[in-house]
Each structure stands twice: as C-alpha cells, then as structure tokens.
C-alpha cells in the first residue's frame, strides 16, 4: 500500500546516463536522470518509444550499466541482476517446455528448500494469480493474459521486495488488460512490494501509479513527475482521473486548446 508517510528510500538514482556504442556511433539512451522511489511505492515510467524507459528499468534491474551517475537500491549501488528485484517481461519469458507449475517454481530451484516447501510457495503464488486449475498446462495452451499471470506468479514466488515490470500488459486486449491492472493492484496492496511499471499508455499509468514519471526521447530523460493523489479503486471516468490524465497530456503537448475554447 502506498504509505505516503513512511519515507524510506528504496531506489536512489542520481544523474544517471546510459550510452550505447554502435560501431563508431554513440547513442544516448538516458541523459542525466535523477529519481528517488520510496519503499512500497507504485511508480509508472511513462513515455513514447525511444524515451529510455526500458533502459531505466534495466539499469535498476542491473541489466544495464550506467555510463555515468549512479543507481542505488536499499542504499547500495546496483552491481547486477538480483532475485530480490524481479523483472517481469512484456514477452513473459516463460519456458515453453515447462508446465505452468514448473515455470512458477523456476526461481526457487537454486534455493535450499525441500520439495514440500517449494510446492507450498508455488501453490500460494498460483492461487494469488488465480491459475491453480492450470498448473499442468503448458504456456502455449494459455491466453496472453494467463501467460502474463504465470510470469507474475513466477516473479512473486521468489518473494522479491521489488517488481520491475516492462510493459507487461502491452500485448493484451483492452478488457484483459483492465482486469490484469486490477489484479496487480490487489496483489500489490496485499504484499506491499515496490513496483516500477513501464508503460506507454497514459490511462494505465494514471490508473496504477502513486507517481507517474513522464519521460521524453532524444535523448531519453525525465520531463516531469506527476503525483496521482487519488485513492485506490480508481474510476477511469471520474473527473479527477480525467484531470490528471489531461495534465499529463499537456506535459506531452498533446492537448488541443482551441477545441476547449469552442467547447465553452
């Protein structure tokens, strides 16, 4: 739950830049990004493609190395991928030769757990995403929404303190996506993990986030950070919801002002 009074810093990013070398060319994916995220906060990284939001998520996950600046989690610089900071991929990253159950248990296989202990965790996570009945199915036999729930269960099984989600619902249809959003919020409220969620969908960001980090391309940078001061169980048609959405549209300079004048 977004406990706004507890100010424990979870992620601390200072003047982060990430550059890629493509032959002789240099490409700046992220330029001078600074951001802090509180423990238990739900933050959305929002922006068009090429704004470096996935690179930023990758830097927090330890997949990308900073060219300059720093990324710290729990006060320590990120040295590499860590099971406590679990990545959820847009393409799910499920292993097609394993059943749902064995996919969910993947991250537990290098831990010192007995078989019943492991099974207990897998069962609990399958229940959490409502897929207990599909434990013996293979990923190919599931819909996109179900696959993403398997991926979420697999991420939760290792009991991370942070979920790093890279456009996880991007490939889903609108109705499935709305359901997954509600489910994610429910799970987040139940276990209080920090969530960083990358999306290019403004409504999705406003629906999910405590704060929306608005990013812009060329070079990738943070343009604005918008706090969504609304409780949970948000209504997408509520006036306050629309106001926040419009404010973000304004940041992207996508709002048509002349039309508003005629409207009056």
């Amino acid at each position: 739950m977004g406990d706004h009074d507890a100010m424990t810093t979870k992620i601390d990013i200072q003047h982060l830049s990430v550059e890629y070398h493509r032959g002789p060319e240099r490409f700046t994916a992220l330029s001078d990004v600074s951001l802090t995220v509180r423990e238990g906060e739900f933050v959305c990284l929002l922006g068009p493609s090429g704004c470096g939001k996935t690179t930023l998520l990758g830097a927090i996950a330890g997949f990308e190395r900073p060219s300059s600046g720093s990324v710290s989690v729990d006060g320590r610089p990120v040295a590499g991928p860590d099971p406590r900071h679990t990545f959820v991929f847009q393409d799910y990253g499920l292993l097609p030769w394993r059943t749902v159950e064995r996919n969910v248990g993947l991250g537990l296989e290098n831990r010192k757990l007995t078989r019943p202990e492991r099974q207990l965790t897998v069962d609990r996570c399958l229940d959490l995403v409502g897929l207990a009945a599909f434990r013996n199915h293979y990923p190919d036999q599931l819909s996109g929404g179900m696959r993403q729930r398997v991926a979420l269960a697999r991420a939760l099984a290792v009991d991370p303190d942070m979920l790093l989600m890279d456009e996880p619902f991007g490939a889903l249809d609108v109705i499935t996506r709305a359901r997954m959003q509600d489910e994610l919020i429910r799970i987040w409220q139940a276990c209080g993990k920090t969530v960083i969620f990358v999306t290019h969908d403004i409504e999705e960001a406003v629906y999910l986030a405590d704060r929306v980090v608005v990013m812009a391309p060329d070079p990738g940078r943070i343009k604005a950070v918008k706090t969504v001061d609304m409780g949970r169980g948000r209504d997408r048609t509520d006036a306050r919801f629309l106001t926040v959405r419009d404010q973000i549209l304004e940041i992207f300079e996508m709002k048509n002002y002349t039309e508003v004048e005629f409207y009056l």
Partner: peptide, 16 residues
C-alpha cells in the same frame, strides 16, 4: 536472450 535474462535475474549459476 530473454531466457538468459530470466536465468540471470534468478541468479542461476552457469551450469544451471
């Protein structure tokens, strides 16, 4: 590559 990232994220050894 995504499978290898999953393995990295779960801190699998090279043999695993």
């Amino acid at each position: 590559k995504i499978y290898l990232r999953v393995a990295q994220n779960f801190a699998f050894s090279r043999f695993q």
